[in-house]
Design a protein around this nucleic acid. Sequence first.
DNA 1: CTTGACCTGTTATGTCATAACATAGACAAG
DNA 2: CTTGTCTATGTTATGACATAACAGGTCAAG
Lengths: 173, 173
Amino acid sequence: MQDKPVTQNDVGVAFSRHDHAHCADATLARAEAAALTRGARLTPVRRRALEILLEEHRALGAYEVLDRLAADGFGKQPPVAYRALEFLVENGLAHRVRRLNAFTACMHPGETHMPVFLICRVCHAVAEASATPVRAALDRAAAELGFTVERTNVEALGLCPACHDLACTGVST
Amino acid sequence: MQDKPVTQNDVGVAFSRHDHAHCADATLARAEAAALTRGARLTPVRRRALEILLEEHRALGAYEVLDRLAADGFGKQPPVAYRALEFLVENGLAHRVRRLNAFTACMHPGETHMPVFLICRVCHAVAEASATPVRAALDRAAAELGFTVERTNVEALGLCPACHDLACTGVST
DNA sequence: CTTGACCTGTTATGTCATAACATAGACAAG
DNA sequence: CTTGTCTATGTTATGACATAACAGGTCAAG
């Protein structure tokens, strides 16, 4: 369980150049392990949906996932995609990005965590950032008001390193 | 500009008993001042939309706002509400709560701030919590990855103090 | 082989959001 | 006063996202 052959820091992979085929495979493997541990059944549709999400470091709309599933011979009605995605989210294998009405694969399934998303408004890459300090600050703010936090969405829109650099250098046109 | 007759702490009002008529009036007045400062035109529909949002400390769907606007003699097609709400959001007089696909009045318009929402899943009250530390933590996490944060959504779902107490005491039924 | 739990698929519908176009007042330039 | 432009409001129509309700299929437990 500790032979994770992580190529780089895990957090923020979305923004670094990397061997994505490897990255996706490894994440899928971790997801399978996590599902097994939880006794969650990663059936063909669900697994395929996860693979689809893993193809890119961005968020996909449910209907986008649906089209790909349908192309692979699965059902072609919305609930097919929504159910698979719901399963993935419930089991911590994917996350919902509310700002985009879309879904993205979880990059470190198994570990319980509060996702913090960094969404590039130019290239639409989505990265999961380190959440612990944010969560702590949030808990503290909530506690001041006597509020009990159960679930959170933390999403930031902005520029990823690559697009930021482009914006700075290539303003000429 | 500094004669704010704030009845209580401003942050978290939603969860405290308070003179809401006063709270709403005062917030509306601050919103008007803020709009004036920005040179933003708080026209009748827009103003009415804001009043509607201010009636309760919860988030209202666009169509809910629309119905109320229509009842008051304004247009009854979706864009009427969406445009008014968009204006309010753009000008910092209201916020969008993505988790609920809904909108809520800003409780301290004028002050630039990153909203942090605490949403009670039982009574649906929505409070704006103190955001600064959360924002700082988020900025730090983003900076580690070279990401530039522009806008954020931070939303926590859970139990407000009142509903939490009820859940603890009144489990019998 | 029947039952019950769970998964997949369907039809139909509901909810949220916006594109594109039409009209009306505000106001400065002519 | 009129014309052009800007902004706001309103409309029709459509697009995008999401779920309720039901039908059939698999499979292990009894």
